[in-house]
Write a protein that binds this DNA or RNA. Structure first.
Lengths: 117, 117
DNA sequence: TGTACATATGTAATTATATTCATATGTTCA
DNA sequence: TGAACATATGAATATAATTACATATGTACA
């Protein structure tokens, strides 16, 4: 924006400082990928469904009025992101939230939207 | 899954309970839209850049090696989601993080990925 | 008032994503 | 082992989203 040499030098310095405090490229990409997983209403619904009760794929699908295949696809994404875990009991596989981060992140998000509506 | 009448009745009841604890459809969609905003590495980078210093569009673009137009488009999305705010000073518009939720959400996300790598 | 700088916006194109359908895999039990 | 149930996977389609380019809007100052 400014064109004199001193300012440009100062600006470059500031930029370098910011870059140093910033996490590495890979970490930033991982972070955005984590949030992208939260960024779909079907997956959000699944997470809320699992918040109180462990549930199996079929019940989730029935409850959310979703296709079984769609639920399964989304659960895989949630599983890969370590947002849900599962435990097999016979034919049925019960899914549950993986750890407390999930609830905390959802709650913070909820706070944000409540305060901004 | 199970076929006897009693179980189906119990299942329906459980499902209804979960539905009651679940936020409304609109709220869930708003929440997923909030997280979708976090779900892009360009926007994440912009947010981290703004974490320490208020910055103008041009500087952000230079620092992140991004097109000015791309930065501007992303800032609009961040602005609409109330993740950043801005203050005009002459020709320049300085952007900053809107509130503490932003940092807190980013930090929780970072915690999650650090514990799962 | 016109020129230069800063930012925003419209559009087009490329790429990513969710969903459905069909089918495969895995598990139990008679 | 085969029938029935539960879940996962592959492929195709439809929709969304990011980016770049061109251009418009807004502001300051000579």
């Amino acid at each position: 924006m400014e064109q004199n040499i001193e300012f440009l030098a100062a600006e470059e310095h500031q930029v370098r400082q910011v870059m140093e405090n910033m996490p590495g490229e890979e970490e930033l990409i991982d972070l955005s990928e984590l949030f992208r997983v939260f960024g779909d209403s079907s997956r959000i619904k699944i997470l809320y469904a699992l918040m109180d009760h462990n549930m199996c794929v079929t019940d989730i699908a029935q409850m959310l009025q979703m296709n079984q295949s769609a639920v399964s696809h989304q659960l895989r994404i949630l599983k890969d992101a370590k947002l849900v875990k599962y435990k097999r009991e016979g034919k049925t596989i019960f899914y549950s939230l993986d750890d407390d981060h999930v609830k905390m992140i959802l709650n913070l998000g909820m706070e944000h939207i409540s305060e901004n509506k």
